[in-house]
Structures are given as structure tokens and as C-alpha cells.
Design a protein around this nucleic acid. Structure first.
Lengths: 230, 230
DNA sequence: TTATTAGGATGATTTATATCATCTCTCTTT
DNA sequence: AAAGAGAGATGATATAAATCATCCTAATAA
């Protein structure tokens, strides 16, 4: 098993979305049936095509969710940060993971027993409805990311990656890429070389400042325009 | 309003997934808060970026769900047939339709009041859980279709379209395309010309029989192989 | 009835981007 | 310390598929 996986009794209560909709008994039930697992950078959390076993909730760190294709092609779907469920759609869908997840930095993940969780869903309609909401939003999000990869050309896709980090992940226009160029390319749906080339063009055109993994978006307007033009 | 939309009191009960999980009162509540609308071929059912208003359940006919891009590019996501919800992910997600739907043949669609439906979800955990399941499967499905469009090359994508009709829609290896070549191309994530060319190659290679919109898959094995090779 | 538009089909040309090749630099690993 | 591996970068080349152009036919409108 490629996971450093040390189990701790640490509660994951504070990261659970809509925890306030749960009553004491429900919190306690989930508490009794969950535990936090620590992963080191590069550890595999789950592989696609394996059976789902638990509800997984990010407590700390960052994880990449990706689909592995037959011919080496892998597609990076999204990054998951604390407070987000991972693999939820597969758990609720067909019980087989449709994608893989690995830690891109040390991460703590809360594992919750599926049956306990389902019981809570069944007896708490409001909580359940909110979960439906979360899953739907997650679906729409991945869906938009894939649309970007499918139907925009390179500059638009690279712009989307920049916006993804600036708006969704770090919520500021300057940040360090937490991924290699290869992984960034997988996130943009292209190759490492093409990604580098286009990013360099952005740099030369003074749209961004770039030094290694350090990025600063100089002209957010242009990036957004590129994203919209596709 | 571009809809022939005549309202009838016809019940949509028999098409509702997991209707057996509902009790009499719940069925009656949904019944009182729903009505069937008839659409003619080519009628628009809803447009993307509009607010969601009702839960919509297909009663008869066929509908195409698609995303309209800025530069004329539209992507056909899936077809919906009786017993399927349409726009559910948007209703449950962010209340704004993320895609459009039009009837590709005369269709009856059951419109259910969102609040009535949500009330049922909240008081019936089993039903609610099944809905979560449906939405997840829907998400995974669209997700796989888009993966096909993004990361397979033409023959693989055309093969996927053939398999979609043969396995999902008609459940037999011979059928009539219910769409124009342009729409089929949108379903495959390509252009009309490229779609026609590749389909003609399939015909010349005796993988399929083809005459106008009539298709018969001669070698299902080859089609599946093409799909898998990508 | 003729004119116009939309669908289908093919060939020629262009183009975006993947692929291949090479080089440097920095880490590991031994 | 040497050697190997992985990341980043850039130029040259190949290629899949889009675009453009044309033609035919059938449906629809004037």
C-alpha cells in the first residue's frame, strides 16, 4: 500500500460542510465512524476502477484528482482543498472510482464510513439536500473544466488554468504553481511543451510575470478575455 | 415563447424514477404540483443561462441537451429519453441552466414544482438518496462523454457516437440517426465534414452499413476496439 | 414555378498543436 | 564525485483535423 497512512483520532468535524444542519446524535455517529489519515506528498489516495470504500473529506493539504487514459494520457480534473469531498460522485454513483487521487503536498483526509453517512443522509433531509447541491455543483464545475479542455484552443486553455489558480485555489493574482509543467499541461489538456511555449508567450507579451513556479498575473483583463474568446 | 406548450392534466407518475419509494401523500403532493407540457420537434425547452423553474421529467419523445459556445460552437452533451430528468444538475446546483434543451421529436415533459419536490426529498430519505445516485450517474456519464471528446481522436469519437446510439439509446446494433450530420458532429466534438468523412471510411471499411440516416453496425468488435484505442 | 435555403458529400488547403530532438540545470542516488 | 533521472526550455518537423470551396439533392419559401 503506497500510503504513509497513520491513523489518528483527530476529529474532522470542523471541515464538514453543513455541519450545522446535523444534530448532536448525527455528529456523534459520524465521529464514531470516521478517522483521519495522513498522506505524504506523492502518496496515492485511491486509484480509478477500484471500489469506493469511504466518504473522503479533505482536512488539510492539497490533492489532485485525475483520470488515467490507456495510452499514458492523463487528464487532471481538479485540485481538492480542505473542506471538499473527494470521490463523492463515484461513491454515490456507481461505487467504482472513476478517477484517481494523489496528494501533491502532505494531506490529512477524513474517512467516513459510507453506511453511517448514508444513514445520516436518510434521516436528515436538509443535510441530504445540501449534499445533492454540492454534488451538482461539483459536476457542473468539472463539466466546465472539460468543456474548456475540449473546445477552446491553447491560449484560452492556459488562461483558464491561470484563472483556476488565481480565482478558485489561491484567490489572489500571484501565486506559486503547486504542480510541475507536465501536470499543468494535463490540467490544460495539452502537452508539456505546448504549455511551456504558450506560457512563455504570455510572459513575453507581459500578460504575466513568470519565474519558475512563481506567477503573477499582470493583466487580469487580458487573461479573462483570452479565456472568453477560447 | 417558442413552445407549442399545451398543458394537459396527464399524470407523469408512471415515468418517475423510484416512484415506489414514495408514499401516497407524497405522490399526491407531486401530482398536484405538476403538469405535462407538449413540445413539437425543434421547440426550445430551456436555454442556458436562464433561471431554472421546475424539475423536468421526460414522459415521451426525445430531447437534446447541449451547450452553446460563443463562437457558434455548440456541444451536444446527451439525448434524454422517457424516464429521465433534464436539467436536474442545474436545478440542484446553482439554479441557472448550464445548458440548453430542445426537442428533436415531439415530446411530453412533466414539470414539477421545485418546492414540492424538495419537500418530498426532505421528508423521504430513501428517495432523496436515490436522486443523489441519479445525479451522480448523470455527472459521471456526461463526464465520460466529454472525456471522449477531449482525449480521443476522430475514429474513437465516431465509434463512441455509434456505441452511444446502439447501446444507450436504441439498445440494438441497427437504428436510424435521429439527428443531422451537423448535430452528430456536435455529439462527437468535431465538424460536420470530418464526421461525414470518418463515417464514410467506416462504411468503406465495412465496419458499418450506412444509407442516409440508416445505420447498421456490422462489426461491433471493431467499433468497440476503435472506441477503446481512442 | 422558380428561387432559396439546408443537408449531405468530397477534394484541396491551411493551421494549430503534437511529436521529436536536443540542451541545460538541478536533484537524487550510488 | 560521478552518473543518472526528472524538470524546464526551445527549435524543427509532422500530422490530424479544421477550414474553405464546390457540387448535388431535397425541402421550403416567395
Amino acid at each position: 500500500m503506497n500510503q504513509s497512512g497513520s491513523i489518528s483520532g483527530f476529529p474532522c468535524e470542523q471541515q464538514m460542510p453543513y455541519r450545522q444542519l446535523l444534530d448532536e446524535g448525527q455528529v456523534e455517529l459520524l465521529q464514531r465512524n470516521s478517522n483521519v489519515v495522513n498522506y505524504n506528498k506523492k502518496d496515492i489516495i485511491f486509484r480509478q476502477n477500484t471500489r469506493t470504500s469511504h466518504i473522503m473529506l479533505m482536512v488539510s493539504g492539497m490533492v489532485k484528482i485525475f483520470k488515467e487514459g490507456r495510452n499514458e494520457r492523463t487528464v487532471l480534473l481538479r485540485l481538492a482543498t480542505p473542506g471538499e469531498y473527494i470521490g463523492m460522485m463515484s461513491v454515490m454513483g456507481d461505487q467504482i472510482h472513476q478517477y484517481s487521487a494523489t496528494a501533491i503536498e502532505n494531506a490529512d483526509i477524513c474517512f467516513i464510513d459510507i453506511n453511517a453517512y448514508r444513514n445520516v443522509l436518510m434521516e436528515n433531509g436538509k443535510f441530504s439536500l445540501q449534499l445533492t447541491n454540492l454534488i451538482s455543483q461539483d459536476g457542473l464545475f468539472i463539466f466546465n473544466r472539460l468543456m474548456s479542455q475540449t473546445h477552446k484552443q491553447l491560449p484560452g486553455r492556459i488562461a483558464d488554468v491561470l484563472l483556476y489558480f488565481a480565482e478558485q485555489i489561491y484567490k489572489q493574482p500571484h501565486f506559486d504553481f503547486p504542480l510541475t509543467r507536465r501536470e499543468l499541461a494535463e490540467l490544460a489538456g495539452t502537452t508539456k511543451e505546448s504549455f511551456i511555449r504558450t506560457l512563455t508567450e504570455f510572459k513575453n507579451d507581459k500578460i504575466i510575470y513568470l519565474d519558475g513556479s512563481r506567477v503573477e498575473i499582470i493583466s487580469m483583463d487580458i487573461v479573462k478575455t483570452l479565456s472568453e474568446l477560447g
